[in-house]
Amino acid sequence: CHSECLGNCSQPDDPTKCVACRNFYLDGRCVETCPPPYYHFQDWRCVNFSFCQDLHHKCKNSRRQGCHQYVIHNNKCIPECPSGYTMNSSNLLCTPCLGPCPKVCHLLEGEKTIDSVTSAQELRGCTVINGSLIINIRGGNNLAAELEANLGLIEEISGYLKIRRSYALVSLSFFRKLRLIRGETLEIGNYSFYALDNQNLRQLWDWSKHNLTITQGKLFFHYNPKLCLSEIHKMEEVSGTKGRQERNDIALKTNGDQASCENELLKFSYIRTSFDKILLRWEPYWPPDFRDLLGFMLFYKEAPYQNVTEFDGQDACGSNSWTVVDIDPPLRSNDPKSQNHPGWLMRGLKPWTQYAIFVKTLVTFSDERRTYGAKSDIIYVQTDATNPSVPLDPISVSNSSSQIILKWKPPSDPNGNITHYLVFWERQAEDSELFELDYCLKGLKLPSRTWSPPFESEDSQKHNQSEYEDSAGECCSCPKTDSQILKELEESSFRKTFEDYLHNVVFVPRKT
């Protein structure tokens, strides 16, 4: 048989008469490798580009789960590009990614509803959504962080984005990388972005840091009482949809009607710091009717980097990364020049730590249904340095008659930039024990000054392991946590139920 035959053949030295091919099969003959313009397919066939392209389009058009959109890589027609490569849609070739590779997620039936953290986790790592997304989240724990972890990498949506009755959302900033909504599939009414009845939605994105392009379709905003109209108009300008909307697409009466839409800028007039305090004062603000001013709200939190936005980490279910302080308005003076500047002394802060701070007014709604208010920009203030805590785990070892090696770990709280350490030492008198000992005694162990690591005695271990207080009263049991108490109650309830079950099964009433 021919060298490319495997198993047997019907005619000697003829690659077209093989029972099976050793390498690849091409047009009725066995070959060692697939010549151009053919590609290896499933490690035994040679196919042309049209064959591989037909497989790709067949799966793409069917949208069946589990099928493969075949691509070409290293002269092979394979189910998908290997790690580190992405497909070129024009020629199906796998090309190296520039940075992290995109991950295209194809949605069944063309859309997916995100109504819980669990459903959001199914899209973790996706960068391109081939379909439409509907966000409908009523509640949950730590929602802002969970949504950002699972949806934060999405850069492109081919269909539309719909935010509907998501009472738990305060902001859409968890879509931190969303840059493009194509609108290839539109919501009824030709809408590519749809926001309806979101009672706590206050911000779409921080438009000073976020760009969003909507290729096709219109915007729809109705019944978002805490979303200011200025935020919607800003989205029109940034996304390129200005002029597409009709009169009733953006409701003037049901958007922002319960919001404090600040239209003035508060400026800080005085800032002073110490290692654990920050004193702030800002310019006074009074609405047209000074009785509408209820006070100020001061927001602050630790910020290692200057990239904080107002609604980071917030949701309507209680999660809030900001510390909020309510401040009463100052006494009002008739003389504008003698107006008191409101302020606040922030206490209990960490030394040498940068804080993000902003302040906003708290006002009631005027009778004319106009909203007044003022808010400052987010500023960054760093507390002063102070003395560091003591170095940890000092170790001293003498390696000769004239040297001592000293080692330690950095302090747990540096409280500033540590530039150097101060080492103090003092000579001590020799131990009298060394002169009084009889060095001729056998088995004498000389006193040693070398360091030995501390260890816990058996008594201390027994005390720590004991669940009861000892007789001397030195140790006591740790208080039980809520989960331990709940577990004990469940076990007790189970024992009672099981005992009742045994009584009912074992003891049967005697027939009379």
Rank of each mutant, 00 (worst) to 15 (best):
Ser158His: 07
Ser192Ala: 02
Tyr270Ser: 00
His341Ala: 12
His233Ala: 05
Asn200Gln: 09
Glu231Gly: 12
Ser402Asn: 15
Ile157Thr: 02
Asn399Leu: 08
Tyr300Cys: 15
Pro329Trp: 04
Lys226Arg: 07
Ile379Leu: 10
Asn307Thr: 06
Lys360Trp: 15
Cys317His: 15
Thr118Lys: 13
Gly159Ser: 06
Arg281Lys: 03
Ser333Tyr: 02
Met297Asn: 15
Phe290Met: 02
His222Pro: 00
Gly243Lys: 07
Asp249Ser: 05
Gly139Trp: 06
Glu302Ala: 11
Tyr300Arg: 07
Ser173Asn: 12
Trp286Cys: 15
Leu298Gln: 00
Cys228Ser: 01
Thr371Leu: 12
Ile378Pro: 02
Tyr191Val: 04
Asn130Glu: 10
Gly295Asn: 10
Glu302Ser: 12
Ser400Val: 06
Glu237Ser: 04
Lys360His: 01
Thr254Met: 14
Asp249Val: 12
Gly152Met: 06
Asn224Lys: 00
Lys242Tyr: 14
Leu123Asn: 01
Leu201Tyr: 00
Ala303Glu: 02
Ser166Phe: 05
Arg244Ala: 04
Ser166His: 02
Asn399Ala: 11
Gln121Arg: 12
Thr386Leu: 09
Pro329Arg: 11
Leu133Phe: 04
Gln403Ala: 02
Leu196Arg: 10
Asp393Cys: 15
Leu151Pro: 00
Leu293Trp: 06
Pro304Arg: 13
Glu236Val: 14
Tyr372Ala: 01
Asp206His: 04
Leu204Asp: 00
Asp206Phe: 06
Lys409Trp: 12
Cys126Val: 01
Ser376Thr: 12
Gly373Arg: 02
Ser400Trp: 12
Arg182Gln: 02
Lys409Ala: 13
Leu294Trp: 11
Val170Lys: 04
Pro351Trp: 02
Glu264Pro: 10
Glu246Pro: 12
Leu345His: 05
Leu172Ser: 03
Asn142Cys: 02
Lys234Met: 01
Leu201Val: 05
Lys337Ser: 13
Arg179Tyr: 11
Glu236Phe: 13
Ile134His: 01
Thr185Val: 13
Lys226His: 05
Gly256Tyr: 08
Asn190Val: 10
Ser171Trp: 02
Leu265Tyr: 11
Leu406Phe: 15
Glu187Phe: 11
Lys226Pro: 02
Tyr380Thr: 15
Leu153Glu: 13
Val381Pro: 09
Ser260Gly: 03
Pro304Ala: 15
Gln258Ser: 14
Lys360Asn: 15
Ile395Gln: 05
Asp257Lys: 14
Ile405Ser: 14
Ser400Arg: 10
Ala120Gly: 11
Trp344Ser: 07
His210Trp: 08
Lys226Trp: 12
Asp315Pro: 05
Gly189Leu: 15
Leu227Trp: 00
Pro411Leu: 01
Ile154Leu: 09
Ile378Ser: 01
Glu156Ile: 12
Gly343Pro: 01
Ile181Val: 09
Ser171Ala: 05
Ser260Met: 08
Ser171Met: 05
Tyr223Ser: 10
Asp115Ala: 03
Phe221Pro: 00
Leu392Ile: 07
Asn340Tyr: 07
Leu227Cys: 05
Ile405Ala: 05
Gly348Phe: 05
Val359Pro: 00
Leu180Ile: 15
Thr127Asp: 03
Leu219Ala: 10
Lys350Tyr: 15
Thr213Ser: 08
Ile404Cys: 04
Ile157Asp: 00
Glu231Tyr: 01
Asn198Val: 04
Ser119Ile: 14
Ser401Phe: 08
Asn387Tyr: 03
Thr353Arg: 10
Glu246Gln: 13
Tyr194Trp: 11
Thr364Gln: 01
Lys409His: 03
Thr273Phe: 06
His106Cys: 02
Pro225Val: 09
Tyr305Phe: 13
Ile378Glu: 01
Asn263Lys: 09
Gln306Pro: 15
Glu148Thr: 11
Gly152Thr: 01
Lys407Trp: 06
Pro288Ala: 07
Leu293Met: 11
Asn142Met: 11
Asn263Asp: 04
Pro342Thr: 03
Ala195Cys: 15
Asp312Thr: 10
Tyr305Gln: 06
Glu111Arg: 11
Gly217Asn: 04
Pro394Arg: 05
Gly295Tyr: 02
Asn198Met: 08
Ile163Thr: 03
Ser208Phe: 14
Asn136Gln: 01
Asn248Ser: 12
Gln121Val: 05
Ala144Phe: 15
Cys126Trp: 00
Val381Arg: 15
Arg165Phe: 15
Tyr191Lys: 08
Pro410Phe: 10
Ser119Cys: 14
Ala303Gln: 13
Lys337Ala: 14
Gln258Ile: 02
Gln403Gly: 15
Lys253Arg: 07
Lys253Met: 14
Ser132Asn: 13
Gly256Met: 07
Trp352Phe: 07
Leu169Gly: 02
Glu155Val: 15
Ser192Met: 03
Lys162Ala: 03
Glu146Arg: 09
Lys301Val: 05
Tyr355Met: 02
Gln354Lys: 06
Glu262Cys: 06
Arg370Gln: 06
Arg332Pro: 07
Ala251Lys: 06
Tyr167Arg: 10
Asn334Arg: 14
Thr353Leu: 07
Ser398Lys: 01
Trp344Ala: 13
Gln258Asp: 05
Ser239Val: 13
Tyr223Val: 10
Lys226Asn: 13
Leu153Arg: 06
Lys242Cys: 15
Phe220Trp: 03
Leu201Gln: 02
Phe268Asp: 00
Ile379Cys: 13
Asn141Pro: 10
Gly125Pro: 00
Gly183Asn: 01
Thr118His: 14
Trp322Gln: 04
Gly159Ile: 00
Ser269Lys: 07
Glu264Leu: 06
Ile137Phe: 13
Leu298Glu: 00
Phe221Ile: 15
Gly240Thr: 03
Ser376Pro: 01
Gly217Ala: 03
Pro287Asn: 03
Ile114Tyr: 06
Gln403Arg: 09
Lys162Arg: 10
Thr213Tyr: 07
Phe175Tyr: 02
Asp249Lys: 15
Ser116Ile: 08
Arg347Leu: 05
Arg138Glu: 04
Asp312Gln: 03
Ile278Lys: 01
Ala120Pro: 03
Arg347Val: 11
Lys103Ile: 13
Ile327Asn: 01
His341Lys: 11
Gly348Lys: 01
Phe220Arg: 15
Lys177Glu: 15
Leu219Met: 12
Ile134Thr: 15
Ala149Lys: 14
Thr383Tyr: 00
Glu122Leu: 14
Ser274Asp: 14
Pro330Gln: 10
Pro394Trp: 15
Glu310Trp: 06
Glu109Thr: 12
Pro336Lys: 04
Phe311Pro: 10
Thr118Met: 05
Trp322Ile: 02
Asn200Ser: 10
His222Ala: 07
Thr254Ala: 07
Lys409Val: 09
Arg347Lys: 13
Asn224Pro: 00
Leu265Gly: 06
Arg176Cys: 10
Leu204Ala: 14
Trp207Tyr: 05
Tyr160Ser: 13
Ile157His: 00
Arg247Met: 09
Glu187Asn: 14
Lys267Met: 06
Glu246Leu: 07
Ala195Gln: 02
Cys261Tyr: 04
Leu345Pro: 05
Thr371Asp: 05
Cys126Ser: 01
Leu108Ser: 10
Thr127Leu: 07
Asn399Ile: 10
Glu187Met: 14
Ala259Asn: 02
Pro304Asn: 08
Lys218Ala: 12
Met346Ser: 03
Asn263Phe: 02
Ser269Val: 09
Phe174Tyr: 14
Tyr160His: 15
Lys267Gly: 08
Ala149Ser: 06
Asp312Met: 07
Asp292Trp: 13
Glu283Pro: 05
Asn307Ala: 13
Pro330Gly: 05
Pro388Leu: 02
Arg165Leu: 03
Lys277Met: 08
Gly159Lys: 02
Ser166Cys: 11
Arg202Phe: 08
Pro410Ala: 13
Ala385Thr: 14
Leu280Glu: 00
Phe220Ala: 07
Lys226Met: 11
Pro394Tyr: 04
Val238Arg: 09
Glu368Thr: 12
Pro411Ser: 02
Arg291Asn: 13
Ser173Tyr: 11
Val117Thr: 02
Gly152His: 09
Tyr380Pro: 00
Trp322Leu: 02
Lys226Thr: 05
Gly140Ser: 11
Tyr305Ile: 02
Val325Met: 05
Leu345Trp: 14
Glu155Thr: 04
Ser319Thr: 05
Gly256Ser: 11
Ala374Pro: 15
Gly110Phe: 13
Glu109Arg: 04
Asn307Val: 13
Asn248Gly: 08
Arg332Tyr: 05
Leu143Val: 14
Leu108Thr: 12
